[in-house]
């Protein structure tokens, strides 16, 4: 195992086992870190800069997407010194519009694809879904893996599908959504992470947000360990995106603690770490205002797009 060649056979046979109790204990330790004063303030700004502001609803309209894009680079115009969010995340049909709305900003446009959120479609459909988003200017593609095939043990299928989509992405970075809420065990989460990384994922991502539980600390921790092991073995850095379920600042800061202590400070930027969230930004803004002025405003003082 010392010099294991990272190929699919080795990964399936040697993906490490995960002890859930131990993982939960470690995660509790992250949450016992006390983040105060300037580290809180710096951390909150970092959180803002790592958010993928997301709308993924059947009822999405151009109007909704436009308003969200405006929010992405005007988080709160009454506060100075705020970063933008990292990206907006939309359905493929909204990519062109979002791209246009964000001209002149450094905000990326991410698009879900591959028959999001279920992934239950033939490869040809998934490929054209992906190509459509890329052709419309998507900077990042958030694909879902085929959980059915994974759970039935067809790891080759899962691997090859990711590799094919990666090819279709061209220059767009590929985020691979494992939908960990459907994988049920941390052993599965680890194996799926290893397969996705091997198949060419630039990022691995916990969830679609459509399945509960979405992102949890134990799941994110397990995926970060896979990222770190890959880095040690190959020197290549893979990004991490927990999505869904992280809606308050305190929890987001503890995710940063986890990133710092599990993979290292090199991952503390939006090239390698993202939060997929829609309501997190406003809670962070509220906390930043509290840190600056000493008073909490009501939620009505923060725009809800």
């Amino acid at each position: 195992m010392k010099t294991m060649v990272p190929n699919l056979k080795n990964i399936i046979n040697h993906s490490p086992s995960i002890d859930k109790v131990g993982v939960e204990e470690r995660c509790a330790r992250f949450q016992s870190r006390s983040i105060k004063n300037e580290s809180k303030w710096e951390g909150l700004k970092m959180v803002l800069s790592m958010i993928d502001l997301t709308t993924l609803e059947g009822k999405d309209t151009p109007g909704k997407v436009k308003q969200m894009c405006y929010k992405a680079h005007h988080l709160n115009d009454n506060m100075s010194d705020l970063p933008n969010v990292a990206a907006v995340c939309v359905y493929p049909s909204m990519v062109k519009l979002a791209k246009k709305e964000l001209i002149g900003t450094n905000i990326k446009v991410a698009s879900v694809s591959t028959a999001f959120p279920s992934g239950q479609a033939p490869l040809s459909v998934k490929l054209s879904d992906t190509k459509f988003a890329v052709d419309n200017g998507a900077d990042e593609i958030d694909m879902v893996i085929s959980r059915g095939e994974f759970l039935s043990g067809d790891y080759n299928f899962v691997h090859d599908e990711i590799a094919t989509i990666k090819e279709a992405c061209g220059h767009a970075r590929l985020k691979v959504i494992l939908e960990t809420g459907e994988l049920s065990t941390l052993d599965n989460v680890r194996l799926a992470s290893d397969i996705a990384i091997l198949a060419g994922a630039d990022f691995i991502k916990t969830s679609t947000g459509k399945i509960s539980p979405a992102a949890t600390m134990p799941v994110t921790y397990t995926m970060l360990q896979a990222i770190r092991d890959h880095y040690v073995a190959t020197g290549k850095m893979i990004g991490m995106k927990p999505a869904g379920g992280i809606s308050n600042s305190k929890l987001a800061l503890h995710y940063l603690v986890m990133v710092k202590e599990t993979v290292g400070d090199e991952w503390l930027n939006n090239t390698y770490f993202r939060f997929g969230a829609s309501s997190l930004a406003n809670d962070v803004l509220m906390q930043i205002q509290k840190a600056k002025t000493g008073i909490y405003s009501s939620a009505d003082y923060f725009s809800i797009d």
Binding site: S34, I35, K36, E38, S39, K40, M46, V232, D265, L268
Partner: peptide, 15 residues
């Protein structure tokens, strides 16, 4: 291990 960019973000004292 390669580069180490420690202390991009560190914890303020919390006595």
């Amino acid at each position: 291990m390669s580069k180490k960019t420690q202390d991009i973000w560190s914890y303020a004292p919390a006595p």
